[in-house]
Design a protein around this nucleic acid. Structure first.
Lengths: 214, 214
DNA sequence: GACTTTGTTTGACACTTGTCAAGAAATCTC
DNA sequence: GAGATTTCTTGACAAGTGTCAAACAAAGTC
């Protein structure tokens, strides 16, 4: 949690007590989690600070007390979110003892997060699109994109190891391919929640073997 | 142009003269083109009807005269846009006489539209993200996605023909892969306009050969 | 040329938005 | 427990939003 910092935090030149700054951080996290819930449901465009406050246990004044402005809050949310999302497959990568096991575990985790955390993924693709128009979001989005790319690259590297082969595409390419499939699934999930996870699995199974070669 | 219809158009039960309804359609198109320009620059969230009107030769009242409401306008814009975008590679597909020629032409056209029509592509990815939150956009977005999928599938099919091979992935998968790479390029173009086109070309060259096999 | 229809302008409405500030309440310090 | 500090509530603000309607202009109809 402490890894996430805010522009407002920089203004706390005197963190009188450790318990004090810690409490501030706790509030920020609570607000961010509440905000993320609202953002995931409504999307960036339709989410106002008041809406975030209403869906939380705080009033809209508190939001502005802990965050300089809207962008500061959103930015903090994004950074808070990223710390949770990019390590999703680490366990699978570490424990898998065969290529097939890795693929199975990877697909299971991916379809699971598709179903369980749909709002978060919708929000991520929304924010990434917004970052094309709102420069202030770009650094955070780029950082997350990089984390996700590395995540995919770790998986593919391990997959190559286990199958005694080598990746046949570079890291950005591998990420773009997998991400394209996943985004398609996230967008399609709204219209077809039943079939989408299986379709995603099927399509990843078509693609993954092509990304490595002896 | 006539293919694009609007909810407001349905209310015109009496199209007195052909020249009349045609003029209406012309106004709608003019407004849509102006709106698309603004939308491409500002994105969906930050574009208001007044902003659209200000960037056009009309007043904000006219917008509401020709379109029932904001969604009606946006929806019309999206449908108008789609008629232009999905046939971009048709000529290349038809005239290419070898796999290499097809790939070269395809890559040239794709990097060209990436550079020349960046705002339109940014808007498209923005709108697709918005459609996850705004149900009314979903049908139009789905329709365009389907068109684009078919477009990619035509290219891949022709590529397979010319190289005496068969596609090794199905149409939705092929589209998701290529689209993932293209979206990555669109997002990255803002930060790095110089290198992005070449990177996209490079990555597509890594991938395309893997999508067919004898 | 009067009259109806069609198109456009203008201004207003109700509402939401982000931001802020003044003061109440809670907490901490001594 | 008094005083100082932090935290929170409340209400207000200016600006912007989508929507609409009444007045005005243009064009077509007889």
């Amino acid at each position: 949690m402490v890894a996430v910092t805010s522009a407002s935090a920089a203004e706390q030149e005197r963190p009188a007590r450790v318990s004090g700054i810690d409490k501030i951080e706790r509030r920020r996290v609570a607000l961010a989690e509440s905000a993320l819930k609202t953002l995931g449901e409504l999307g960036y465009a339709r989410t106002s600070l008041r809406e975030i406050a209403n869906n939380s246990e705080f009033t809209h004044g508190v939001v502005h007390y802990y965050f300089r402005d809207k962008i500061d809050l959103i930015s903090y949310c994004v950074r808070y979110y990223k710390t949770k999302c990019a390590r999703r497959y680490d366990e699978v990568v570490e424990t898998a003892t065969s290529g097939e096991e890795l693929v199975t575990g990877f697909l299971a985790k991916m379809t699971q997060t598709l179903v369980d955390e749909t709002p978060m993924h919708k929000l991520w693709y929304d924010l990434r699109a917004q970052s094309m128009f709102e420069e202030q979001l770009r650094p955070d989005v780029e950082a997350i994109d990089k984390l996700l790319e590395e995540m995919i690259w770790r998986i593919l590297g391990r997959y190559a190891d286990l199958t005694a082969s080598m990746p046949t595409v570079d890291a950005p390419t591998a990420y773009a391919l997998v991400d394209g499939l996943f985004e398609q699934a996230v967008v399609g999930y709204a219209a077809n929640p039943d079939k989408t996870p299986d379709l995603l699995t099927d399509r990843l199974l078509q693609v993954l073997p092509k990304l490595v070669a002896p």
